[in-house]
Structure formats: C-alpha cells, structure tokens
C-alpha cells in the first residue's frame, strides 16, 4: 500500500516540476534619461535588481554630465567664465575619455562643438542656416584643445561649451554593461537611445541579431549584424535634421567648416567592445567621409559598416561574416 502512494506522489511531483520549470525570467524596462528613450532587457534571477541599479546609475550620471541641469558639473564648467572648476571623479573620467577620443580622431569628434550646434538649432523648432559670420564666431570657440584639465579640475575659455552628448550614451552603456556583469547577469540587451550593447548570447547560444537603421526610412532596418558581448552604435543624417531648398542639414557638424557634415556617407555603424569609443568614432567617421574613414578604421583596428549616398554599403573585414543585407535597395561592396 505504501509503495503505491509513494509512486503516485513521485509521479505527481515529477510532472509538476516539469511543468513549473520553464525558461529564464526576462526583465525589461523602458525609461527616459539623457534626452532619449532607453530600454534594458536582462535575463536571470537577479535581473530586476540589476536593472534597477542601472537606471539609478544612469540618472546619477546624467546629474553629473548634463549640459542643461543647473546642478551638474558640466553646467558649472560651462558657466565658470574661464575659472577652474572642481569635478566629480565620474565627470573627470568622461571628460578624459572625450579628450582622448578627440585627439585620436584629430578633432573630427569634438566635445566642444556645442556653440555651433546651438547656433544651428537642428532638432529644435528654431533650426536655421546662420550667416557665415556667425558660424565663424562660433567656430573660434570650438576646439577640444581649449579644455584644460588638471587632476579632477578643469577650465574652459569664456563662451566655450562642453557637450558630452556625443559620448554620454556610449559611456553609460559601458558602465551599465559592467553593472549587469557584476550583478551576475549573463544575458542582456541594452538600448540607450539607439546605442546598443549586448551581453552574452541568446538563450540557445546564438548571437544576438542587431538591425542597422535604413537611412531612407528611419523606422526600418536595411541590414543585420550577428554579434555577442559587444556594442553597436550607428550615426547618420536621418536622426535629426532639417531641410531647406531641397538640401538636408543633419545634426552632425564638421568642426573644420562649422557646417553640418556633408560627405558621401549616409550613416556609419561601429562595432566595438567599448561603447564610448564606438559612440565617438561613428560621429568622427561620419565627418571624415568614406575614404578617410576607411583608412582610419584600418589604422586603428575599428570594425565598421558604411552606408554611402549611392546606396553602396561597405563593411570592414572583421564584420563580413556577421553582416547580412536584408533590403534590396542597397548593394554590398567588399
């Protein structure tokens, strides 16, 4: 008699266990920070706590490096009228990274571009083409070499302005990825306003599939990349722009001319384990134009996807087996 009950109980419990244990828990959170929409999708038992920690971190980072918050370090630096300003360790780190990348890209990425972008106002209702004289005046204030740093303090000439929007999201993505890793999260997709960072691989051990935005139709993608444990960042002329007399003026500026970058490129995508680098590189490469950009990638071991104005797509060697075109509007070139 006893045995029968044991057997029944065992069968019951076994069945229940099989039914109950199904997959890893997914946590997904949408939120807004740094003037953009963000989403973190993480998997695992500790995912919810880790994601909450990430959101808190990003809000705190924004408090340090925001240009518009009056209590931020960067606001203080921009309004110090040439005086030295004491910065938090975090702000110092972001500024140092920005300077390093500006130097590396020979100023094609420049964190002091703000006077120019303010003048043009692209992405706001007041977007306009300024007079050349205005552009020339603003240009004098744009030069990353104007930023002086000494330990955790920095100084900026009067009128010059730091805007870390160009690497802020990338920096945040790197830090968030680290927070997730430290919390034991092995799989996650971090989307910070179009900057992607993927952690690990999908459940079945397959790499993540990341779409690259179609410059002709910003809601769609024209190609995909199969990647794991890396960051994918795209910059293009479709993000923020305004049009006048049939000409498109995008939000990425050429620090040389003071005009929106007008090259043979529609968009640049960089794949790198460091999202901060990728963020700055996409801007710089876009400004450089395809020829110089490809040389730069070769010299600095950068993996990138270029979309040219003639719908030709160029992919660097290391990405070719991960890349696939999904739109017939584009042609692929080795």
């Amino acid at each position: 008699m006893k045995k029968r009950w044991l057997c029944t109980a065992a069968v019951t419990i076994l069945m229940m266990a099989v039914l109950a244990g199904c997959g890893q828990k997914e946590v997904t959170q949408d939120f807004y920070a740094m003037d953009t929409a963000m989403n973190i999708r993480a998997y695992g038992s500790n995912a919810q706590d880790a994601v909450n920690q990430c959101v808190r971190y990003i809000n705190q980072l924004e408090q340090d490096i925001s240009r518009t918050r009056e209590d931020s370090d960067i606001y203080a630096l921009n309004h110090a009228q040439g005086d030295w300003v004491e910065l938090s360790e975090q702000t110092t780190d972001v500024l140092e990274q920005a300077l390093r990348l500006a130097e590396e890209t020979e100023g094609c990425f420049d964190p002091t571009i703000a006077p120019l972008s303010d003048l043009w106002g692209i992405g706001t209702e007041d977007a306009r083409i300024p007079a050349q004289a205005e552009i020339d005046t603003a240009l004098e204030l744009v030069n990353y070499q104007n930023l002086q740093m000494n330990g955790t303090s920095a100084a900026l000439p009067e009128g010059a302005c730091i805007d870390l929007g160009g690497i802020g999201k990338g920096y945040a993505a790197d830090q968030v990825a680290q927070i997730l890793r430290d919390a034991g999260v092995e799989r996650a997709v971090i989307t910070l306003g179009g900057n992607i960072y993927v952690l690990g691989e999908k459940e079945d051990g397959v790499p993540w599939t990341i779409g690259i935005t179609d410059p002709d139709s910003a809601g769609d993608y024209f190609a995909t990349l199969q990647v794991s444990d890396t960051s994918v960042v795209t910059s293009g002329d479709y993000e923020r722009y305004f049009e006048q007399d049939g000409e498109r003026y995008c939000h990425i500026f050429d620090p040389e001319t003071g005009w929106p970058a007008q090259t043979d490129l529609r968009s640049v995508t960089v794949v790198s384990e460091c999202s901060t680098d990728a963020d700055a590189y996409t801007t710089a490469l876009f400004v450089m134009g395809s020829e110089r950009a490809m040389e730069f990638c070769e010299a600095h071991d950068i993996e990138a996807v270029f979309v040219k104005t003639d719908h030709v797509v160029h992919v660097t060697e290391g990405l070719r087996d991960k890349f696939s075109l999904t739109s017939s509007e584009y042609t692929y070139e080795e």
């Binding site: 992607i196 990341i210 779409g211 935005t213 910003a218 960042v233 993000e239 995508t269």
Partner: peptide, 20 residues
Amino acid sequence: NRVMIKITGINQDGVDAVAQ
C-alpha cells in the same frame, strides 16, 4: 511626449534591437 511604439513577438526573422 514620451510615447513609444514597438513591435514585439517571438523573434524569428526580426531583430533583438536596432542601432539608430
């Protein structure tokens, strides 16, 4: 407006995220 629309579902030929 802080309004977002997105397409979700079992991912077959879709993507996990889009770099914008």
